[in-house]
Design a protein around this nucleic acid. Structure first.
Lengths: 346, 346
DNA sequence: ATTGGCAGTCACAAGAGCCGAGTGCTAAAG
DNA sequence: CTTTAGCACTCGGCTCTTGTGACTGCCAAT
């Protein structure tokens, strides 16, 4: 059985290894921490931990390094969420408080999170599928061009240009705008798509094709943006920690740019409650747990944000296994909470 | 004096070094290229080139490597712009043709350019300062909230939410919208700012503060976006070529994320006609020429796009000194031209 | 359960030696 | 004046060896 002291030993191994990047030996443990026992005793505990595959020795005889499982144990049971410093809290306030619109909020958030954690930060745009239609606008740009603008209650704005055959009837455009808003306002996006499919049929033949054109543009705007986006910052941090990766960080950077892989991972972390240490609301996915995404050598910490149940979207950080989980989980949680509050005010 | 053959030697040194990453010696030159002279003669030429600081020997006795100055000579006088392959041209057509709006065009462009060159690609958003006002829209969101939307003729759309005290008068909002569009439509952004400063004064006291609020929001939208943005893709390529950098690529990645440094560099390259090889329209900034930006170990190739004189904005690639200039300059030029044509159609 | 002692293991650094690619120089030939 | 062949020399990089030091695992004693 793994004793309580053994777990303390695991904790300091993780902490010291994260701090120093060097495999930690029994002697350095008794030197740096007051366990009140000898190095030999620590060695016995370490043998136990190795038995449980929580730590491993890179070479036959040098200190121990946490395994994926060891980090997992640390995150779930041993990490104390270090509260942010006053300076950090103040940075959040000052930095995010000055935002002007959704794009700006997310851009600031991701940069802030990257700076707080010294890792790659990721923020998912609010899922349109959980948003509702707030307003639809049709703006005539020229004789035969209309810009359709689509606004959701999460503050997202999508615009698209529609070429129409023949001159635009301004009066009818105003009527159409009004009818669209009446029909769609407040609907979820799935419902809105259904309504739009049938919308043109409520108009006479002369108008039908024109309305159908507009409706299909709006439908595309909804559909095209169901696939959400990520904003990213701090890629340079990945390079800084490059030595923590056995291979190249090239595939990792590619995955980040590609987005699609990370979005799947985000989705899975939202669905999965395994990785979630209940009291913090921060989910972790560590090392080989990401193997199916080709990201077996990184850790991802995420938290939902945007609604009281955290269900709209996620944000988080990505970095090497060897990261400061205590600090980073605290930062992710704090930023997610702040962002939730900020968006809630709108 | 540097003979014509010496320059041929410089050309093959650059080409071979870029291809192989190994310092190139006199023997391998006569082997791989048919100069019709002996290795000793090549050595004499190389001594000349070294005299002129166009090449340098990393160690006392191994092959030669181009200096910054050597690359500059190559770019200005020796590089043949290899025309794109049919497949590449087709890729441009297919990839960019499917775009739906400005954001999408630029996102696609930057990814395409990154793939064509295998380097980091950068595209600057069209400078608002050279744009004109196409349309202003005011959308009531709720009892006391208005979204002001600002559209330029370069297709850029900026939106912002304005909180107003007291209920909104829809009829007046329509009137205001009409008057704003009459007053601003077609104006350059600087002029528009001037008009807005005085705009509220044309309304009676009851309306004045309301109009002033809207006007100041619009002014902010213009001002906030005068500072342009870059879109970037292919950061992973920088990691791939990491061995070409003596130090870490960390500061380079930081500069890319920071944007401000690169925007200054872009601005300088637009103003400067030094680095521009006249017949191509592609400007190059090589190695130490970027030292003031802390980017002394990279090359940047850019071209203007967006107007016949290429004056609206720039796009380009960034990579190690040791890059395929012939291919990359051709790609930058081709993409810039295609993009110009695409935007001109709108 | 804990401890001290001890032999054993292994990565890593430093040093020695060899190899080969490539140079500069010189003297002769075109 | 340019080109060529020959030759001695330099030096980076590879391999092999050796030495050192940090650990461990095990065992007998407490």
């Amino acid at each position: 059985m793994v004793s309580s002291r053994s777990l303390d030993v695991l904790r300091v191994i993780v902490q010291d290894y994260v701090a120093s990047r060097e495999p930690v030996g029994s002697k350095s443990i008794v030197e740096r921490h007051s366990f009140g026992v000898s190095a030999a005793t620590i060695r016995n505990d370490m043998a136990l931990l190795e038995e449980e595959e929580l730590i491993v020795a890179p070479h036959t005889s040098s200190g121990r390094v946490p395994t994926d499982k060891g980090y997992r144990m640390f995150v779930d049971h041993l990490a104390d969420l270090r509260p942010l410093t006053a300076a950090q809290r103040q940075a959040i306030d000052q930095f995010l408080g000055a935002s002007v619109d959704l794009d700006d909020v997310l851009a600031r958030t991701v940069r802030l999170l990257s700076q707080l954690t010294h890792q790659v930060a990721l923020v998912q745009y609010p899922l349109l599928s959980k948003s509702r239609v707030r307003h639809v606008e049709l703006v005539p740009l020229s004789e035969t061009r209309i810009m359709s603008v689509f606004i959701t209650d999460t503050g997202r704005v999508e615009q698209r240009i529609v070429d129409v055959p023949g001159a635009i009837d301004e009066a009818f455009l105003a009527e159409l705008r009004a009818r669209l808003n009446t029909a769609l306002g407040g609907l979820g996006l799935a419902e809105a798509t259904e309504v739009l499919a049938d919308f043109a049929n409520h108009f006479d033949a002369a108008r039908h094709s024109f309305v159908a054109l507009i409706a299909s543009s709006l439908t595309e705007q909804i559909g095209a943006n169901r696939q959400d986006r990520l904003v990213m910052a701090g890629a340079a941090n990945l390079v800084r920690t490059e030595e923590d990766f056995s291979g190249s960080i090239f595939p990792v950077l590619e995955a980040i740019e590609e987005q699609v892989t990370l979005l799947r991972l985000f989705g899975e972390m939202a669905a999965d409650q395994n990785g979630l240490s209940a009291q913090t609301g921060v989910a972790a996915s560590i090392g080989r747990e990401n193997a199916e995404f080709g990201l077996g050598e990184i850790s991802v910490l995420t938290s939902g944000y945007g609604a009281s149940d955290g269900s709209i979207a996620r944000l988080g950080v990505l970095g090497p296994l060897r990261m400061d989980y205590s600090n980073n989980m605290a930062a992710v949680r704090a930023v997610a909470r702040y962002l939730t509050r900020l968006l809630g005010e709108d």
